[in-house]
Design a protein around this nucleic acid. Structure first.
Length: 253
DNA sequence: AAAAGGTTCAACCGCATCCAA
DNA sequence: CTTGGATGCGGTTGAACCTTT
């Protein structure tokens, strides 16, 4: 068998767009399938990671809030390095992000322990106090998006997520979402995004998508799913449902 | 202004677990 | 029950970015 070359390293915006498109077509489960069908020269694993850690529109960006930081420390003391479990309690944060945060946090802790505590009164006491060791206190000057502009990841991702809201809340781990903070903000944002914003994504890339091996991979059968399966992926009430049906008829001619 | 050192974070790897055949 | 493929998880790495000198 001729092993197709696998791309590694940073994702390009174009790859991202393609991945988002196919995830919205097929859902975020069948990664190997999506990897093949999308024409991305990536492994399913890599696609999943990219989606989960970066493209998933429910993700928050930017620094952890003090509340989140406290939660991480609290939960870590309870569960140890169970990052994904901890992440489920922090809606919009990924295990990777929390893991990275924790490493930074621990390093800072270690550094502070090494260095003899200055008897400064401004340095609020207890070493267990998250806020005293919290990186966010030092680093909040950094803007979430350096340029301040909303790029593809902020725009399209969220908008598509808006469209998939019903579907994804079904699969969401409820015990995390039930914590009932900040996810509201996310949904708020989502609800505010006008539906038209979805269109440019498909408009801009339809040619590439049409050129994708998906059409070789499942010549006829692909769109056979549309009635039943598309209802699963995009419920009828879902605005994306119509887009999907439109798209499928458009692609199949 | 440039070099050095430090920090952050996206992405990879290997192992574990799940699940369908 | 076994096996093999898919997916998930945690650890680690390295490039890009930031800060300090």
């Amino acid at each position: 068998m001729v092993q197709e070359e696998i791309r590694k390293g940073p994702w390009t915006e174009h790859e991202d767009v393609q991945l988002v498109f196919y995830v919205n077509l097929f859902g975020d489960r069948r990664w190997d399938f999506i990897a093949k069908v999308s024409g991305l020269k990536r492994t399913g694993k890599s696609c999943r990671l990219r989606w989960v850690n970066y493209l998933h529109p429910g993700l928050k960006r930017g620094k952890m809030t003090p509340h989140e930081e406290r939660l991480v420390v609290e939960l870590h003391s309870k569960w140890g390095n169970r990052w994904s479990k901890i992440a489920r309690k922090l809606p919009g944060r990924t295990d990777n992000e929390i893991k990275n945060y924790w490493r930074t946090y621990m390093r800072k802790e270690a550094q502070e322990k090494k260095r003899p505590m200055p008897p400064s009164p401004s340095y609020s006491n207890c070493s267990s106090s998250i806020s005293s060791a919290s990186p966010s206190l030092a680093a909040d000057s950094k803007p979430i998006m350096e340029t301040g502009e909303r790029n593809f990841y902020d725009n399209v991702g969220l908008d598509i997520y808006a469209v998939n809201k019903n579907k994804s809340t079904e699969t969401h781990d409820c015990d995390g979402a039930a914590e009932g903070y900040s996810m509201d903000e996310i949904w708020n944002d989502i609800d505010c995004s006008p539906e038209e914003n979805i269109k440019p994504l498909f408009g801009g890339f339809s040619e590439e998508i049409l050129a994708s091996p998906i059409w070789d991979y499942c010549p006829d059968s692909l769109w056979m799913m549309d009635q039943e399966d598309s209802n699963m992926i995009f419920p009828r009430s879902d605005p994306f449902h119509s887009l999907f049906v439109q798209g499928s008829t458009h692609f199949t001619g």
